[in-house]
Each structure stands twice: as structure tokens, then as C-alpha cells.
């Protein structure tokens, strides 16, 4: 078992989860249950790879990919904020739509998957940090990731800053805690919710680009494999706090990395290790919920 490899993969797998968590946190704090992270991530992955393929330019493809995901975010916001629809159902619809649109376009183009290996050089996108890469063990873990992986880890700090040190962050939290009070002091709560959801869509688009374009230069159907929901679990566990939720995201990344690395040495039953992250999430979520329940002083049953 290669310990260095496991840690490297841990960072690599955590990046899209962290991005989804960071994006989802704002909607969570603004009291919008956004379960469409999965679909937005898939849309980001699909549209960026598709438009890189069409335009032949990585930068342009990423921009259009982000725009396409933002459109999905607008649709979600219109449905749940302006029209006051059921966010769970709208979120599910976004998830289904993203998966359906990508499957439909792939079929209409007559392709099994989108491969842009000839345009994107995956090895070339990896950034080797000058001094750190020469440190014996740590260099192999930290150095050599694509750009957005680093952005995701820096993003934890930026998002914390925005959430707790800016006026906008205060507005978001006030909107989530008491919408009527927020409206009464003149905060445009709908606008705040829109921005919160759009930040989520933007982060998910980055996560999708990271997942599909930067690491593999490949898009396959339903490649998101529940990352969006893993992120939601991390948000619930971390109560929507950027740093704490991100720690959970990294733990889930570790689970995935363990699953992949154990699979290599497992032989025929290798697929069984793929279930490890999912069971681990259920376990962690259960433990965290029990701890939260212990501090609960509300009588009776409350469904949140």
C-alpha cells in the first residue's frame, strides 16, 4: 500500500467535494435547501468538456461551461425563490435534467463519451510548486495537482472571509436565521438568496471542470456519482460552517481515496470497496446527528 499515493488522492478527490460544500454553504446559510449541487456539478463537467471539444480552446470552454451552469442556477432560483416552489422537488428536477441533457446530447452526437485528450494535456495542467516539490514525502502529496484543486483549498479561506467578515456574509446569515426580520430592516432577501444560489452554481461548475476536464479530459454519463450529495452530507455535518464542513469534505475525500487504492489490491471483489465512502458518510452523519441531538432541548418531534 502506497501511503503517499493515498494522501495525494485524498487531496485530489476532496477538491470537487470542497468546492460543492463551499458553494452549498451559502444557500444553506440563507435557508434554501439546495440539493441540486449534484446536477450543477454534472452540468459544469459536461458543458465545459463539450465546449472545449467544439471550440478547441480550454479557457473559452471553461467560461461557457460556467455560464451554462449559472443558467441552471438561475432556473433553480426562479423556481424556488421567485415562484416559492418546493426546493427539494426543483433540486431533483435539476439533477435529473442535467443527467438527461448530457445523455441526450451524447446520443444525438453518436458518442459514448466525450474525449478531449487531443486538446487538453492532463499531465501539462498539473502544477509543480517550485520549492515544495523537492521536499521528500510532502512534495509528492501537495505538489502536482491541477489549478482548481489548489483554488478549492484557498477557497476555504476566501469563503470563510466572505461569510464572516463582510456585510454580504452577515446579510446571508440574517436572511437564513430570520427572513422577516431581515426584510424589516430593508435587506432584499430574495436578492440575497439569488446570489447565494449563484455562488453555489459557480463553485459547482468549477468542481465539474476539476472533475472532468482537468483530471481526465473526459466526460462520461453520470460521472458525478453522488459527489453533490456527499457535499450535502458534509454541509449537514458541519452545520454550514465553511471550515468545519470542509474538514468533513476532506474526510470523505479520504474515504474515496482509500476505496480506490484498496480496490487495486483487492482482486475480483474490488467493487465492494467503492461502497466504503457511502457507508462512512452514513456513519459519520449518524454520529454527528446523535451528538447534536444530545444538546437539543426542544420537546417533541421537529422535522427540519
Amino acid at each position: 500500500m502506497n501511503f503517499q499515493r493515498i494522501l495525494y488522492d485524498m487531496l485530489s478527490y476532496s477538491a470537487p467535494i470542497i468546492l460543492c460544500v463551499l458553494g452549498g454553504n451559502y444557500a444553506h446559510k440563507a435557508n434554501v435547501l439546495n440539493i441540486s449541487l449534484e446536477g450543477m456539478l454534472l452540468m459544469g463537467a459536461f458543458s465545459s468538456v463539450l465546449f472545449v471539444m467544439i471550440s478547441g480552446n480550454i479557457f473559452l470552454g471553461c467560461i461557457i461551461g460556467i455560464l451554462a451552469t449559472l443558467i441552471l442556477g438561475v432556473v433553480f432560483s426562479v423556481m424556488c425563490v421567485t415562484k416559492k416552489g418546493n426546493p427539494i422537488i426543483a433540486g431533483l428536477a435539476i439533477n435529473l435534467l442535467a443527467s438527461a441533457i448530457s445523455a441526450f446530447v451524447l446520443k444525438a452526437m453518436g458518442l459514448a463519451n466525450l474525449n478531449v485528450n487531443n486538446i487538453v494535456d492532463v499531465a501539462g495542467l498539473k502544477i509543480n510548486i517550485p520549492i515544495i516539490k523537492d521536499i521528500p514525502f510532502i512534495g509528492g502529496v501537495i505538489s502536482g495537482h491541477p489549478l482548481i484543486t489548489y483554488v478549492s483549498f484557498i477557497g476555504i479561506f476566501i469563503m470563510w472571509l466572505i461569510m464572516y467578515r463582510t456585510k454580504f456574509g452577515v446579510y446571508v446569515r440574517v436572511t437564513g436565521e430570520n427572513e422577516d426580520a431581515a426584510t424589516s430592516v430593508g435587506i432584499k432577501t430574495n436578492r440575497i438568496k439569488y446570489i447565494a444560489i449563484m455562488i453555489g452554481a459557480f463553485c459547482c461548475a468549477l468542481a465539474g471542470i476539476n472533475l472532468a476536464l482537468e483530471k481526465m479530459a473526459l466526460f462520461t454519463n453520470n460521472m458525478s456519482a453522488g459527489i453533490g450529495f456527499i457535499a450535502i452530507a458534509a454541509i449537514f455535518c458541519g452545520k454550514g460552517k465553511p471550515v468545519r464542513s470542509s474538514v468533513y469534505a476532506i474526510v470523505f475525500g479520504l474515504a474515496q481515496s482509500l476505496a480506490t487504492n484498496l480496490n487495486i489490491s483487492a482482486g475480483p471483489a474490488s467493487g465492494l470497496f467503492n461502497t466504503l465512502p457511502y457507508f462512512m458518510i452514513i456513519g459519520i452523519l449518524a454520529v454527528v446527528s446523535v451528538i447534536q441531538l444530545k444538546n437539543n432541548r426542544i420537546r417533541g418531534f421537529k422535522n427540519e
Binding site: A93, I94, L96, L97, K107
Partner: peptide
């Protein structure tokens, strides 16, 4: 027409069903 069009329609129906 690829039969995946039905999935797209299905997603749209759910999306519109979320609002009254």
C-alpha cells in the same frame, strides 16, 4: 430522435411541478 428526449421531458415535468 434519440429516446433520451423522454428523460429531458421528464426532468422538465418535475421542474415545473415544483411550483404551483
Amino acid at each position: 430522435v434519440p429516446k433520451e428526449i423522454v428523460f429531458v421531458i421528464q426532468g422538465m415535468i418535475i421542474l415545473f411541478l415544483s411550483i404551483k
